[in-house]
Design a protein around this nucleic acid. Structure first.
Lengths: 175, 175
DNA sequence: GAATATGCATAGCTGTGCTATATAGTTGGT
DNA sequence: ACCAACTATATAGCACAGCTATGCATATTC
């Protein structure tokens, strides 16, 4: 077996191990965050809001793909978000089966408040990070976000959504 | 107000924002991992096994604290783990109310297999990481693990557990 | 030895996640 | 123009992780 193959396999193993450690650390961090904030808000709703902030209004199916959940799961999340008036459903005039889901001002405030409380809750654990450590965490988060965003080819669907955004009608209007 | 207070507040804000980004990235990574592995195993069971590997046998209550869940949640998880024979319950002769929970060989194998499949599932997304990026992720995971481990003063209870480990009896023995 | 504290279990709830399937609307072929 | 096939969302029903409140047995303390 050529030397390069051995090197590649070893490198793949190393990266795999690092990824497992990152996932493991993430799992624990999620629990620490949940407990310290008092566990009031669920990650799923806030992931969905974050996606809407980052990528703009989109259909339930698109949102499910971006948020990495099954479509029926997203239907439920959107219903809950709608009841809280954190999103509104906009009828897509180009396709009567579909809805555009858009975040509301109230939803943006909820997301901001969640970020504030999350930061405040975790700060005591990390307050004495060195500048270097803080930089490592910031870069790691950026790397993960970039890779996860790139994992699925979503650019096309987002563009489509933007293109149809001008021909939509608020829910409650005659359909 | 003195200048240093302003600087501290600004630094706290920066760190808080970084932490929020890390949590956000973690949430998304968890979903990506769940979907790519086919979602067969739950994070909670594997977090528990990881804790047992890292810190050795301990009581359900201690395990709940380390794993950042409520005690009844851990009781359920331990029951599930016991049914799969991934842990065994050992009677604590010093306190008839308590159990020592220990991971089994089968549990260790399950954890290893999970790590392997997780690494393999995520590798395609991260295979072309630069050496520098891989290093950043590894260091970030280490920082998180260290901070989370240090968040709760668990050293004493772990020591206690080790101290009583010699006076325990397997479940099924006369009590 | 009675009162209090502690460790775990049970009951019962909520929310997130899934698959399978239903319903409504769109699209394409003849 | 119509029927078939596809597509977007909704519904049904399940499993599990998480919680609080509470019960029960055992320790501990006065």
């Amino acid at each position: 077996m050529p030397e390069t193959v051995v090197l590649d396999a070893s490198r793949a193993t190393t990266i795999s191990q690092i990824l497992v450690e990152v996932v493991s650390a993430s799992n624990r961090l999620t629990r620490v965050a949940a407990r310290r904030t008092g566990n009031t808000e669920s990650p799923a709703l806030l992931r969905t809001l974050s996606t809407l902030i980052a990528s703009g209004p989109m259909r339930i199916g698109e949102l499910a793909v971006e948020s990495r959940v099954a479509q029926p799961t997203m239907t439920k999340l959107v219903r809950t978000l709608g009841e809280r008036e954190w999103v509104r459903r906009i009828a897509d005039t180009a396709d009567a089966r579909a809805w555009q889901i858009a975040i509301t001002k109230k939803g943006e405030r909820a997301l901001d408040e969640w970020r504030d409380s999350m930061g405040a809750a975790l700060l005591p654990v990390f307050a004495d990070l060195s500048d270097d450590e803080a930089d490592v965490l910031a870069r790691a988060a950026a790397i993960l976000h970039a890779r996860i965003a790139g994992e699925i080819g979503t650019a096309a669907s987002v563009t489509d959504t933007a293109a149809t955004a001008s021909s939509v009608v608020e829910e409650g209007a005659a359909r």
